[in-house]
Nucleic acid binder design. Structure first.
Lengths: 112, 112
DNA sequence: AGTATATGAAACCATTTGGTTTCATGTCAA
DNA sequence: TTGACATGAAACCAAATGGTTTCATATACT
């Protein structure tokens, strides 16, 4: 009755938690690249890199395109906006004036 | 001969990967709170919450303060700046004009 | 002094994660 | 068509993760 498969998209926070995957995003920002070329830059097997690529793709952070016998990956930055939105909530804590006010307002809870 | 213990601070990306920990950060932004009060808001044991609090504290995202027999935790937003810096690199991909230019420049690689 | 409260440490456990090697499939080139 | 290349899937494995229960310790209350 609803959409057929609501796609269980893993969240972007999990996806970027791994340093290898962050390197992948950085590497695929400007050039689309096939798997073998990508994996040459990492000290692990091609299949290991391939699994990271899948995780990033599932999170929506990469787009894959088949060209002949190779699969090329490229950055899809849109899901990072969720991260940006999450982070923007904490902008207010970097404003020192506001921070001082907050601490003053709740100072009555600071017994002892 | 260097500093005594350079503290192996776990990275902030790992720390915020867990949704429970993100909730904790949100909860502790405005009020300092002791462990038992905090854990009342989560469907897990107090010790489980305590371990999350430790991870966040080790990552520098929380400050703990002993008050009598309780330990109170509060948000320490500074390490989020690393995340902000990381994210800012990708700002350029959200600028559609720049994105169009990039794709044009590398269009010679797009055979087929 | 003795009891209750607040917390962290420890030992333990199931699941997830990040890697491996092997195998199957599809495409390109001779 | 035959062989090499590019890739993903599968089975497997060790270590990390996120949770539990139990125990020890420090502080507060009567």
């Amino acid at each position: 009755m609803g959409q057929p498969s609501p796609e269980p998209r893993p969240d972007v926070f999990q996806a970027i938690a791994d340093p290898t995957r962050r390197q992948l995003l950085h590497m695929l920002g400007d050039h689309e690249m096939p798997v073998t070329a990508i994996s040459g830059h990492f000290p692990m097997s091609r299949t290991a890199v391939s699994k990271h690529l899948r995780i990033l793709t599932d999170a929506g952070l990469l787009k894959e395109r088949k060209v002949g016998r190779e699969t090329r990956y490229r950055l899809e930055p849109e899901p990072l906006l969720e991260l940006k939105r999450w982070l923007s909530y904490y902008e207010r804590y970097w404003d020192n004036k506001l921070l001082a006010l907050q601490r003053f307002v709740e100072s009555d809870q600071d017994e002892m």
